[in-house]
Computed example of a mutant assay.
Amino acid sequence: MDKRLLVLALGMFALGTDTFVVAGILPQLAHAFDVDIAVAGQLTTLYAISYALLAPTIAAIAGNVPRKRLMLAGLGIFVLANLATALAPTFALALASRVFAGLGAAMYSPTATGTGASIVEP
């Protein structure tokens, strides 16, 4: 197997895991931000919505951007946004950082999928 596929797969695993990790710690997040668990669930919702809406948009807009640059930028935004979520002093900042995490995922995912398809033989 091509090692590049492993790198792409690990990135996709991180994006997918991020979707569900927050759901597992909602009670702790709700307590930390002093909000209801249902409200804390918006952290997952905003990530998923921004990811879903921005992925096709960015794929269309960034067609001329080199794939490697776009994927690295996406992963960079994704990591920084998740770090910001972990350090967020307020719930509003945590929500905003989850939107940016979705942006990073939206930059990486379609590009990684297309890159993976171009790496393998028919």
Score class of each variant (00 low, 15 high):
27 P>T: 07
74 G>W: 00
52 A>Q: 01
69 R>Y: 07
34 D>C: 02
9 A>R: 11
54 L>V: 07
110 P>K: 02
78 F>Y: 12
32 A>L: 05
65 V>I: 10
72 L>E: 13
61 I>N: 03
114 G>E: 13
62 A>Q: 04
114 G>Q: 14
93 L>E: 06
28 Q>R: 12
83 L>G: 02
68 K>P: 01
110 P>S: 05
26 L>I: 15
45 T>R: 00
9 A>S: 02
122 P>G: 15
18 D>M: 03
74 G>C: 09
107 M>S: 01
76 G>P: 10
14 A>Q: 00
120 V>T: 15
62 A>W: 00
16 G>V: 12
107 M>C: 06
65 V>D: 05
8 L>I: 05
56 P>W: 03
18 D>Y: 04
101 A>M: 10
12 M>T: 05
46 L>V: 09
63 G>M: 02
78 F>R: 14
94 A>L: 08
97 S>E: 14
81 A>Q: 11
39 V>A: 08
30 A>M: 14
41 G>L: 06
100 F>A: 04
108 Y>F: 13
89 P>L: 14
121 E>A: 04
65 V>E: 00
25 I>N: 04
80 L>D: 04
43 L>C: 06
85 T>M: 13
29 L>M: 09
13 F>D: 01
109 S>E: 12
73 A>P: 09
18 D>T: 15
72 L>R: 12
114 G>Y: 14
22 V>P: 01
110 P>E: 10
104 G>H: 03
75 L>H: 06
115 T>V: 11
27 P>F: 11
115 T>I: 00
21 V>T: 11
80 L>G: 08
82 N>L: 07
69 R>Q: 07
30 A>W: 11
54 L>F: 12
56 P>M: 05
4 R>M: 02
83 L>H: 08
34 D>H: 12
112 A>N: 06
105 A>T: 12
81 A>T: 10
18 D>E: 08
31 H>P: 03
105 A>D: 07
121 E>L: 05
81 A>F: 09
74 G>D: 10
107 M>F: 02
122 P>N: 14
53 L>I: 08
35 V>G: 04
30 A>I: 08
59 A>H: 04
58 I>H: 04
88 A>D: 09
65 V>R: 06
102 G>L: 07
103 L>F: 12
